[in-house]
Computed example of a mutant assay.
Amino acid sequence: MKTVSLTIDGKEIKAPQGQSVLWAALDNGIYIPNLCALREKATPDASCRLCWVEVEGESQPVTACTQSVAEGMVVDTKGAMALRLARTALELLLASNVVDCANCPASGACELQKIAAHLGVKLKTKRFRKLLRNLKVDSSSPEFTYDPNKCVLCGRCIWVCRQRLGIGALGFAHRGFNRRMSTFGDEPLAKSACQECRECVDSCPTGALCFK
């Protein structure tokens, strides 16, 4: 496969032609915050809006997951505009999610913790007013629990269930602030088409889906 040479944060790297800036950076040890990215996806969702970078020659920041690498490209992951956008996206996300790291089984392995530390954002930010949904936790599965109050709507579990496994037990329900991951007919997981494969839990970047 043909490769291209580019520079990210002053580091010269090579990446396969057509690869996204996000995966090129991650493959070369350069961290760019992200929640919704899955390498298997042919088309990225860019829904988390956390992977902003600045590209030389572009007037505005771009999302690294949707921007393909190019020969001679110069990328800055720490530019002021990109960081401002990423921090705002994270703080808005935190404003509508329960943050209870001390009692969360995912603490220490949670992507939100990693991203907050990387961006210098407090997990209990006060920049935006808290708007919590207080949704019921689904503990019906014998294998895992689903806490929608900790879900960041990244869609990774849904993609894995539908596209990778072909099961289709999970999907998005409702719109706007009420949007959430759900099963068909909003049935408990134990009564849904879920086959208890647990791959949705492995794909979850937060404590929304956790093993029992």
Rank of each mutant, 00 (worst) to 15 (best):
L85C: 02
K41N: 09
K2Q: 15
R164N: 15
Q163I: 10
L123V: 08
S182M: 04
A169R: 03
P142S: 13
V137N: 04
C101G: 06
Q113A: 13
A37V: 08
N28I: 01
D186E: 14
T66W: 01
C101R: 01
Y146V: 06
F177V: 10
D202L: 11
G168P: 07
R175E: 00
Q163N: 08
Q195L: 14
L83R: 07
A208R: 00
Y146F: 14
R179K: 14
V53I: 13
P61S: 14
I167W: 02
I8A: 14
E40Q: 08
K11V: 15
L38D: 09
T3H: 06
G171F: 04
T66P: 00
C151M: 10
E71K: 03
P16Q: 12
A86I: 01
M81E: 15
F211T: 02
R164C: 06
L94K: 03
R180W: 03
M181T: 12
P16W: 04
S192G: 07
L6R: 05
C200S: 07
V69P: 09
E12Y: 00
K114Q: 15
E58M: 14
L50D: 07
C48N: 06
G168E: 08
N28M: 06
A80V: 12
L92S: 09
A102R: 08
W52P: 02
Q17V: 10
F172G: 00
G168Q: 07
R156C: 09
Q67I: 01
K14T: 15
W23M: 11
W23S: 12
R127I: 09
L90M: 12
Q60R: 10
P16M: 09
R127Y: 06
F177W: 09
S68V: 06
E58W: 11
G18N: 08
T88D: 13
V62E: 12
M81F: 08
A208L: 14
C151N: 00
E71M: 10
G171N: 06
G171S: 10
R198I: 13
L153S: 03
S107M: 14
